[in-house]
Design a binder for these strands. Structure first.
Lengths: 246, 246
DNA sequence: CAGTGGTCTAGACCACACG
DNA sequence: GTGTGGTCTAGACCACTGA
C-alpha cells in the first residue's frame, strides 16, 4: 500500500500538470476553488503551491490571483569579476529595468561604522533599488557609501541605477577589488515586500565590501536575488593542499 | 494605532526572547503548550518559528522536541579554490565527521550522460554522503563519476569521504578546474530527510563539473549546504567593461 | 462592490522517539 | 504508552485589487 504519501505530494503532481497545461501569464483558478476541486483544504493546497513559487513557476498576487510564469531569460554572471547587473544583462542582450530607486542620507550606526571603517555617526548615502526583468522584481540591491565618496547630488542625472558603474565611469576613487560573501536566506518581511514575493521565500544574498586601492571600503552592499532569474557561477582551480587520508 | 502588525510578528519578538534566555541544547516547551502560553494557535506559532529555524537558531525533531542551537563554528571557504570540506575544515582546525555514506553503481540516464559527456547507459558511481558538524548534518554531497575514473572498490579503504581528496592523492587523472554554479533552493523532501531539516528550508546548492586536463568531466557533483554553518566568499576583481549611462 | 490571496483558529490524526 | 513535532481540515476574517 503505497498510500503512505502525503496529500501535498499528490497535489504537487496534479499542480505540476495544471501549471504545465496553463499558458504563461494565465491565471490559475482561485485557491478556494482549486482546493475544492482537488479535495483538500486551502491550507494544504497552499503548502503544495509553495514549492512551485520557490521555483518561480507561479506567482501569487494578493487581490488578483495566482499566475503561471513563463520561462524567462536568465542573467548569467561569473563571480570572478564584479560588474553591475546592468552590465551583466547588457552583455547578453537582456533587457532589464530599474524599479523603485530610493536614496537616503543616513548616519553610520555602530554596525555600518565597522563595516565601512568610518566613525560612528559619519554621514553615509544609502542607495536602494529594485531590478525588474520580465516586468517583475528579480533583485533588491542596497549600497551604502561614505558621503565623501558619493553624495546624493552625484546621483541626480544620468544615473543608470548602478553605483558601481557610476564609480567606474567617474574613475575615482580607483577601485581595487570586492570581497563578497554568499548566502542562502529566507526573505524577511522587508525583502518580500520589495520583491513582491512571500515571506520566507528562498533568496540568494550577497554581502560585498568594495575596496579602493588605498584600502578604504568605498561601498558596502547587500544584494538579494530571486532564484531562477540568475545563474551565478565560478571557475575554481583545484587546490594543492589536501587533507591526508587517515 | 500600530496594532496593524500580525500576530506572528509579535510572536517572533517573544520567541527571540525565549530562545535567547534558553541555554543552547535545552528544549523549548512543546508546541501546544507554547501556543497556549502565547495565546495563538499552533499553526501561527509554527509559522513564527520558521524564521528561527531558517537561521539555524532552533532545531525541531519529530518525536523529541524543539531545541535551541548554540552558536557554532563556521566553515569558511573561498570559492576560487576547489577543495573538499574536509580540507577546508582542517585548515581552520574545525572538527567535522562523516555521517551516512552511500555508494551505488548506476547507469547514466540521458541527463547524466549529457552532464558527464558519456554515453547513455554507461556505468557510473554515485557517492552520497552527509557531513556532520556539531553532531548534526550540515551538508549533503553527491558525486557522480564515470566508472573508468573511479570504481566502488577504490573507495574501500582509507577513504576520508571526499572523492576530490582521493583523486588528488592518487594523482590521476590530472585535474584542471571545476566549473561551479551557485543557487539558493528550498529543500526537497529527499534533501530535508538527509539533513534532518524541514521541507522547504533554505539551502545553498552547488552544481559542479570537475574537468581533467584532457577536458573530460570526471566528477559531476551536487552539494547542499545548510546556511549558517558555512561562509562562502569570493574576491572579485573590478570589471573593466561598463555599460554606458544613458 | 465582489473576488482574490494572506493570515488565523481550534480542533484532529499521524509518524516518530523514548522509556 | 506517552509525548513530541508533521500534517491536515473547515471554517473565519483581513488586506488588497479592480470593476
Amino acid at each position: 500500500m503505497a498510500d503512505n504519501i502525503h496529500p501535498y505530494q499528490r497535489l504537487q503532481i496534479e499542480l505540476a500538470d495544471l501549471i504545465e497545461k496553463t499558458a504563461p501569464g494565465d491565471r490559475l483558478p482561485s485557491e478556494p476553488l482549486l482546493a475544492q476541486q482537488m479535495g483538500v483544504s486551502r491550507a494544504t493546497l497552499r503548502e503544495a503551491m509553495r514549492a512551485f513559487e520557490g521555483q518561480g513557476l507561479i506567482r501569487r498576487r494578493q487581490g488578483i490571483g495566482t499566475f503561471v510564469v513563463g520561462r524567462t531569460s536568465v542573467i548569467e554572471s561569473g563571480l570572478e569579476v564584479l560588474q553591475s547587473i546592468e552590465t551583466s544583462a547588457d552583455s547578453i542582450n537582456l533587457k532589464i529595468s530599474m524599479g523603485d530607486l530610493r536614496i537616503h542620507q543616513i548616519k553610520a550606526d555602530s554596525d555600518l561604522a565597522k563595516e565601512l571603517g568610518v566613525d560612528e555617526g559619519s554621514p553615509l548615502v544609502r542607495v536602494e533599488r529594485v531590478i525588474l526583468g520580465d516586468n517583475r522584481p528579480v533583485a533588491y540591491l542596497i549600497d551604502i557609501l561614505p558621503e565623501n565618496i558619493l553624495t546624493a547630488a552625484d546621483l541626480d542625472e544620468g544615473f543608470n541605477g548602478s553605483v558601481l558603474d557610476l564609480l567606474l565611469q567617474r574613475g575615482s576613487p580607483n577601485l581595487l577589488k570586492s570581497y563578497t560573501e554568499i548566502n542562502a536566506v529566507a526573505a524577511s518581511s522587508e525583502v518580500s515586500r520589495a520583491l513582491e514575493i512571500q515571506r520566507g521565500d528562498v533568496m540568494e544574498k550577497f554581502i560585498g565590501w568594495l575596496y579602493a586601492q588605498d584600502g578604504q571600503v568605498v561601498d558596502y552592499s547587500i544584494s538579494y536575488f530571486l532564484p531562477g532569474y540568475f545563474r551565478f557561477h565560478v571557475v575554481r582551480r583545484v587546490g594543492s593542499v589536501v587533507k591526508s587520508q587517515k
